[in-house]
Amino acid sequence: MVAAVFLAAGGLPASGLAAPAFVDDGPLATDTGHVHVGWTTDEPVTLTLTAPDGQVRPVYNGTNDGIFLSGLADGEYALNLVGESGAKAAPLTLSVSHQSLEQALWLAGLGAIVFLLTVIVILRGTRGEGADG
């Protein structure tokens, strides 16, 4: 009974293996929707991701010590890591807040202007129509 309570709390499992643990204490934050999540473990683990709408889905099962998550929409996520023995890591929270769309569109517009002017200089120059070529 005591062992079961200890296990549920995420302590040393009955097998003597250290409980899995995330490398970062957290919370994690990203402005690009992608993040590397690392952990330490002596046994196979299952990682689940709880989305902002409360939906839970498994994202990893195996013996690796990390996974790369990407394409996440804005919101607060929870990551839960559970070992094969049932030992749990302390949950990790992940905050996704993408960069300003307005800033992105302004910079894309600037990029388009610079690129178009570059193309115009090359094409006009090639046709001998440069301002002073």
């Binding site: 990407s70 394409g71 996440l72 929409a73 769309l101 800033q103 600037l110």
Partner: peptide, 18 residues
């Protein structure tokens, strides 16, 4: 699972194009 990868208005990706 990765909705932002299909998002036409993905800010970091828009900035990366040019």
């Amino acid at each position: 699972t990765k909705p932002a990868l299909l998002d036409v208005l993905f800010p970091a990706a828009i900035m990366a194009i040019f």
